[in-house]
Amino acid sequence: MAERYSSFEPKGTRWLLQRLTAAFLVVVLAFHFMTLHFVNHAADVTFQGTQLRMQQPGYFVTMVAFGLTATFHGVNGIYNALVNQGLSGTGKTAVKGVLVVASLLLAVQIVRLALVMAGVTIA
C-alpha cells in the first residue's frame, strides 16, 4: 500500500489553520448564498444595495474576513499542493516568495475594495 505523504505536519499549525479557514469559509459562503441568492434574488442585487450592505459594520467585517480568509486558505492550499508534488530547494523558496507577495497584494486590494464599497474615500 502506498505511503501517505503530506507537507502538513499532522496536527500542526498550518494543518489546523487550513481546517479552521475551511470551516469559516463554508459558513460564510452559506450566509452569502442565503443573503444574495435566496433572500434577494441575483437579478435584484444592485451596486447601491451592495454599498448599503457594506456600510453595516457587521456585514463589512464579515466580508473582509471572508476575503482575507479565502486568500490565506487558497494560497496555503496551493503552496502545500506544490510541496506535495515534490517542489523543493530554490524553487520552493521562489514559489513561497511569489505567493506571499501575491497574497499581500490581494489582501490590500480586498480591504481597499471593501472600504470603497462602504463609501470610505481612499486618498
Rank of each mutant, 00 (worst) to 15 (best):
T62W: 03
V39H: 09
L20W: 13
Q109D: 13
K92S: 01
G74T: 07
V45K: 01
Q51W: 04
E9V: 11
E3W: 04
T93V: 11
G77C: 06
A43E: 15
L36I: 04
L82Y: 08
N40G: 11
Q51H: 10
R53K: 15
Y59C: 09
V75F: 15
V111P: 01
I78M: 13
M63Y: 10
A81H: 13
A30N: 05
L87N: 05
G74A: 02
V120P: 03
L104M: 14
F33L: 15
I122H: 12
G74S: 09
M63I: 11
V98W: 06
S88R: 14
A114V: 08
N40A: 10
G12S: 05
T13R: 01
M54W: 12
A30K: 01
A30F: 11
Q56D: 15
G119T: 11
G77T: 05
E3M: 06
G97R: 08
E3H: 05
T121W: 15
H37K: 06
L82Q: 06
K11G: 07
A94H: 08
V28N: 02
V120F: 13
D44Q: 10
V64I: 02
N80G: 09
I122F: 07
T93F: 04
L52S: 12
Q55R: 15
G89D: 08
N76M: 07
V26F: 01
T121Q: 15
W15Q: 03
M34G: 10
R112E: 14
T90R: 14
V108N: 08
L29N: 04
A43I: 05
G86Q: 02
A118N: 14
L106F: 12
V101H: 03
V111E: 00
L104C: 13
A65L: 15
F8W: 07
L16Y: 07
V111T: 13
Y59F: 15
H41W: 09
G119W: 09
T21R: 04
S88E: 12
V100M: 15
V75K: 14
Q109G: 11
L17R: 03
G89K: 00
G49I: 07
F24G: 00
V64F: 03
V95M: 00
N84E: 05
S6L: 02
F8S: 02
W15G: 02
F8P: 01
G77K: 09
F66P: 00
Q109Y: 12
G49M: 06
V98P: 12
T35V: 05
S88Y: 06
R14I: 09
Q51E: 12
L29K: 04
V95W: 03
Q55C: 01
R14F: 11
G86N: 04
T46I: 02
L106G: 13
G49P: 01
M1C: 00
S88Q: 14
T121A: 14
Q48I: 12
R14C: 04
V28P: 08
N40R: 05
T121P: 13
G58R: 04
R19V: 02
V98I: 12
L87T: 08
A22G: 10
T46R: 04
E3Q: 11
N76Y: 00
A2M: 10
L82H: 03
A107K: 02
T62C: 09
T21H: 00
V39G: 03
I122N: 11
V61K: 12
